[in-house]
Design a binder for these strands. Structure first.
Lengths: 212, 212
DNA sequence: CCATGACGATGACATTTGTCACGACTGTCG
DNA sequence: CGACAGTCGTGACAAATGTCATCGTCATGG
């Protein structure tokens, strides 16, 4: 199987390459660190396209969603597997409505190879936490628009930052002049938005996201 | 004030430089990414030595403790401020018995500048969690030797790894074929060894440590 | 042999964390 | 104006987490 990797973090790119290659799952045709390059490289040689494209969402400039949009416009058969840090409801909704073949969380790297195989086999793959994030029943109301709130509000980011420093709720409340209950509620909201199960996951993902 | 920074992670080096410089606390004379270079650079120009040396402990080759030992051997007046990831009891004990002027945890970067000022003023600075790690009463018994158990056992590392992936105790227990109670105990032990307060701190520090 | 330490387990306990259901205030936008 | 979103607060409750004391096995090394 042939693949290509798009991620603005060179560390992620190379470790993904290693994993994919070492597992014998696929050969890596090329990598890119931004959406524009990705689109260009994908269009370049129609005869030698990746079977599955691993695509990060958060990138400077043209992001993964936009890149996917453009690629799918030309090649309806493109198999795109999003591999990103957050299980943001808005991102997931957009990715899937675009026609992506999968949405994985960077957290569990080991699942990349099997996911690629599944995608090759025509399946759609969602990371464990991704599915939980979406409420399965028909998303009535809310027509087609989805301005849910990509990412977090400023206050939420403040709190996420402190969580990622290992502070407990009491300390966070003290530092932000809030009640402990509010902090708990805020964090609960953040976890819900990002499809995470606990503060540790938030801390880990947050650090990963900041390190850009 | 003049300073120098020693850390094997270039990202840490540069961000520390930025912080120290931007805060107007000190100018950075040089940086090094290993103990040997640090000793060499320190000895090089006795007339233009850093007032405070920021020193990481975990580095390939000659580590921070060894470097400090050698530097202090020649210059008893050297002011060394350890800045490292773990509040490991053994590390702290060694650092302080060597005559270091401080021991900070990388976690809270903002405290670096004030700590340097305090050290310049002749004080010894310990990060908040560092002090808690040491039992204040006379450490009777155990003479001078300290082979506590630098770092963690293999099993403990297994668990730390899973914690840093955001798994909860139940999942960790399941994945390692342990009881949940054992997992709790193991984590409790790890936190104690490293002077940390909760799993989130462990996760954050662990990721930081692995990213080398 | 015996001490030691890593490993695993249990049960009890206190604390922290996460959820839920509320109410209230604010500023913005159609 | 009303709808709405973001913010902050409370109280109650369930679940997860961390700590302790205590026990047993096993391997290793003096």
């Amino acid at each position: 199987m042939k693949t290509a990797i798009v991620d603005d973090d060179p560390i992620v790119c190379s470790s993904l390459s290693t994993i994919v290659t070492a597992s014998g799952t696929a050969e890596v045709l090329w990598t890119a660190d931004n959406g524009d390059d990705a689109v260009r490289l994908y269009e370049q040689d129609p005869a030698n396209r990746p079977d599955v494209l691993l695509l990060d969402i958060q990138m400077p400039g043209t992001d993964g969603l936009e890149a996917a949009r453009r690629i799918l416009q030309r090649d309806k058969a493109a198999r795109i597997l999003f591999l990103t840090t957050f299980a943001d409801k808005s991102y997931i909704a957009q990715a899937l409505s675009l026609g992506a073949k999968g949405y994985l969380i960077k957290q569990d790297v080991k699942s990349v190879a099997p996911a690629m195989l599944a995608v090759m086999a025509g399946q759609v793959v969602l990371g464990s936490r991704v599915l939980d994030t979406l409420q399965l029943p028909g998303n009535e109301a809310q027509s087609g628009r989805q301005q849910l709130s990509v990412a977090l509000s400023e206050r939420e980011r403040d709190i996420a930052e402190l969580v990622s420093q290992g502070l407990d709720n009491r300390d966070i409340a003290h530092q932000l002049f809030l009640s402990e209950g509010t902090v708990r509620n805020r964090i609960s909201g953040i976890l819900d938005k990002l499809g995470m199960a606990n503060r540790t996951q938030l801390a880990v993902a947050w650090i990963d996201a900041q390190r850009r």
